[in-house]
């Protein structure tokens, strides 16, 4: 498929899901209400308020988080040269969930100086666990991918077990549900103030790797071949690691751990456009954003009003599609 064709399809899908997302909610919304909310916003009209302050930031956050996770997945798969890797392979998601859960359990204050702190703890958890895994894989200034993968799997298992223990010890059903929503992800908390940090992280990272797309393509050939072709593998791996951890950490801290998009979208784009495409990272992020917005919309339609935790839908929709790709298309990772 040509890049231009894919862009056109993604553009159509983006407009469709964003528009549909603006129409779906508790307030009945017709085209006129939507037009009024956008072009002659009346803050006293609750429907206008809901469209601008609840639906729009939710849609945008879903798009950015989906994009960020897919983008990070692409980078991590290239870095460790393993098609099974996803942004959570370094324990980022379980670390974030642990950070947030500790606050929900009252061991750390959930609110301080007027700020709601669980997202901050989630980010700290994500960063802390990622650094621990990286430290395990660090050999004389080099990151050893196998150690990174194994260390990530081991640490993730340990932290997932800790999260499970916390869930088991929940003395109220509410705490349990909070943990579930955090582990499986939700955009219900989305506010305009949540947008700038993940957006900046995604835009800056995307631009960086737009310039480094050739190096990234070389890395996909394998470490020794990339080295023979003159690539400074170690430096690029560090760059990928820092970028992917940051983008994933920010995404997870905002909306919980949403699975599968980071694994699936890179494969989809490489399957459609090949492995070395200049625009692959950007298109992966774009497709991830559209996918997550669509899943969030569907989650709200299936189980109103709050919707299913989105991580459930991403797997239910993503896995069959992913299997189709594997079976029907002549697709290789390298």
């Amino acid at each position: 498929m040509k890049t231009a064709h894919l862009c056109l399809i993604l553009l159509l899908l983006t407009v469709t899901v964003l528009l549909a997302g603006l129409f779906v909610g508790s307030f009945q919304t017709d085209f006129r209400t939507l037009q009024g909310a956008v072009f002659s916003y009346n803050p006293d009209d609750p429907a206008h308020f809901a469209i601008i302050h609840l639906r729009l930031p939710r849609l945008l956050l879903a798009f950015i988080v989906g994009g960020g996770l897919a983008f990070s997945g692409y980078l991590i798969q290239a870095m460790v040269n393993n098609p099974l890797a996803d942004p959570y392979i370094l324990g980022t998601a379980s670390g974030a969930a642990l950070g947030a859960n500790i606050a929900f359990f009252g061991w750390l204050p959930a609110v301080a100086l007027g700020f709601y702190l669980p997202p901050l703890f989630a980010f700290a958890g994500a960063l802390g666990v990622t650094l621990a895994v990286v430290a395990m894989a660090w050999r004389k200034g080099y990151i050893v991918p196998t150690q990174l993968l194994l260390g990530g799997v081991a640490v993730s298992s340990l932290i997932t077990a800790t999260n499970g223990l916390l869930a088991f010890l929940s003395d109220t059903e509410g705490k349990l549900k909070t943990i579930i929503f955090w582990i499986l992800g939700s955009f219900e908390r989305a506010q305009w103030s949540d947008i700038p940090v993940p957006l900046s992280a995604l835009v800056l990272s995307s631009l960086l790797f737009l310039f480094l797309h050739k190096q990234l393509a070389l890395l996909l050939l394998g470490e020794s071949r990339a080295r023979h072709l003159g690539l400074n593998v170690s430096r690029l791996r560090w760059l990928v690691l820092i970028t992917a951890s940051l983008v994933t950490g920010v995404a997870v801290a905002t909306s919980g751990a949403i699975g599968f998009v980071g694994l699936m979208m890179p494969h989809l784009i490489r399957g459609l456009l090949g492995t070395g495409g200049r625009w692959n990272t950007l298109l992966t992020a774009w497709a991830g954003g559209v996918f997550i917005v669509a899943c969030d919309l569907l989650a709200r339609l299936i189980y109103p009003p709050a919707g299913l935790p989105i991580g459930i839908l991403t797997s239910f929709i993503g896995v069959p599609f992913f299997l189709y790709l594997l079976i029907k298309r002549d697709y290789r990772f390298e």
Binding site: G25, S26, P46, A50, L54, R55, R300, P305, A306, G307
Partner: peptide, 16 residues
């Protein structure tokens, strides 16, 4: 009447 006895609500629903 939602399926769940103790449903999760969105902020929009509470506003409505």
């Amino acid at each position: 009447v939602f399926e769940a006895q103790y449903p999760a609500l969105t902020r929009e629903y509470v506003l409505k």
